[in-house]
Simulated scan of single mutants.
Amino acid sequence: MPSIDRRTLLAGAAATTALAASASRAQPDAVAATPDLSGKAILITGCSSGFGRLGAEHYARLGAKVFATMRNIPRPEAEELRQLAADDKLDLHVIEIDVLSDEQVAQGVAEAERINGGPLDVLVNNAGIGISGPVEVQDMEATRLAFDTNVFGYHRLARAVLPGMRAQKSGQIFAVSSQLGRVIVPYGGHYSANKFAVEAMFEQLAYELVPHNIDVTIIEPGGYPTEVWVNRNIYTGALKERAEEIHKAGYPEVVARMGTEDGSGRTADAMDVPRAIAEIIALPAGTRPLRRAVSGSAIPQTQINEVAAQTQVAWLGRSEALGPLVRAVHD
């Protein structure tokens, strides 16, 4: 195993004591009001709307070379971004990637690396969908689509960018998760199951990438007024139409509401998420947090994050083989 030298590793007891303070930070630490992302090559998935669209413009205006990806190009959202880049002289490139496609992921990342002249510095895994309703009502079509987009899509992108990041011995991977990756709301379909999987996968990846000097951060947004609500209603409405009555019969009131969610009353600023990501990118390598909760209101997962971090260190922190990896992430 390569030597581990990017962080000062703390011994078990000292690391455990330090965890509560570091894991409980719900909002970004005090940083420069305008982070400088000059020299950073950032690829983002799901840039047709929401956090991806806002982030693409935000990072480019902070000086980054941005690769904004989305599926089904040509489409108006892609042309809007290209026109914005031309008008405002932003180093922003629009590339087609459907995260469901192994081929498009490989080709899209290769194209971004070609334009960049080398490996990428940052991946923001953001593309995702939601399909609501009782677990029993989720048929296999909905289940496969949800996991393929929200979990396997993130995995495809991480595997595509990591060889280059490992070669340059630096990088940062973000996984946009959710509060619902740590807490559960009934009748939320497989969304929590998807995001729990994302949380586990990328925490494991964080440990495994310590020797390669690559940071991993899991972003946990609360509810924001993005297009996710509109798209969720489309997917959920289609599920309701095709679901079998034998499964719908157990939840008549819930099924009646499927496909009619309304996120328009939410007032939190969706720019909270791109700002938090930009601030974390600007931090020195090796000091970036494993998790960052971002919310306009409650942050119910804070204690879960604290206990999980403490448990990992208490369990594996003294292990000769794995302890340095775990402590490096949680110190």
Rank of each mutant, 00 (worst) to 15 (best):
T8S: 04
T8Q: 09
T8K: 12
L9D: 01
L9Q: 09
L9F: 10
L9R: 09
L10V: 11
A11L: 10
A11H: 04
A11P: 00
G12D: 13
G12Y: 05
A13E: 15
A13R: 10
A13C: 07
A13M: 09
A13Q: 11
A14D: 15
A15M: 06
A15P: 03
T16S: 14
T16E: 13
T16K: 14
T17D: 12
T17S: 13
A18H: 11
A18G: 15
L19I: 15
L19N: 09
L19K: 00
A20Q: 14
A20W: 11
A20N: 11
A21E: 15
A21R: 13
A21M: 08
S22T: 15
S22H: 10
A23H: 03
A23G: 04
A23F: 11
S24G: 15
S24N: 12
R25K: 15
R25G: 13
A26T: 12
A26D: 12
A26P: 03
Q27G: 04
Q27V: 09
P28R: 10
D29W: 09
D29V: 13
A30C: 05
A32W: 01
A32T: 09
A32K: 11
A33L: 09
T34W: 08
T34H: 12
T34G: 00
P35S: 07
D36L: 04
D36G: 03
D36A: 02
D36E: 10
D36Y: 10
S38F: 01
S38T: 14
S38Y: 00
S38H: 13
S38D: 03
S38N: 11
G39C: 05
G39W: 06
K40L: 05
K40T: 09
I42Y: 08
I42C: 08
L43C: 00
L43F: 05
L43P: 04
I44K: 04
I44M: 00
T45V: 08
T45C: 04
T45S: 15
G46V: 05
G46L: 04
G46I: 04
C47T: 07
C47E: 02
C47Q: 03
C47S: 05
S49P: 02
G50H: 07
G50V: 07
F51Y: 01
F51Q: 00
F51W: 02
G52I: 05
R53E: 04
L54R: 07
L54M: 12
G55V: 02
G55A: 09
G55Y: 07
G55T: 04
G55W: 07
A56E: 02
A56P: 03
A56H: 05
E57V: 15
E57Y: 00
E57H: 04
H58D: 14
Y59L: 09
A60Y: 05
A60I: 00
A60V: 05
R61P: 03
R61L: 08
R61T: 13
R61W: 01
L62A: 11
L62M: 14
G63Q: 06
G63R: 03
G63D: 05
G63H: 06
G63N: 07
A64S: 12
A64C: 01
A64P: 03
K65I: 07
K65F: 00
K65R: 15
V66R: 03
V66S: 02
F67Y: 15
F67V: 06
F67K: 03
A68E: 09
A68T: 06
A68G: 05
T69S: 12
T69I: 03
T69F: 06
T69P: 02
M70N: 06
M70K: 07
M70S: 06
R71L: 12
R71A: 13
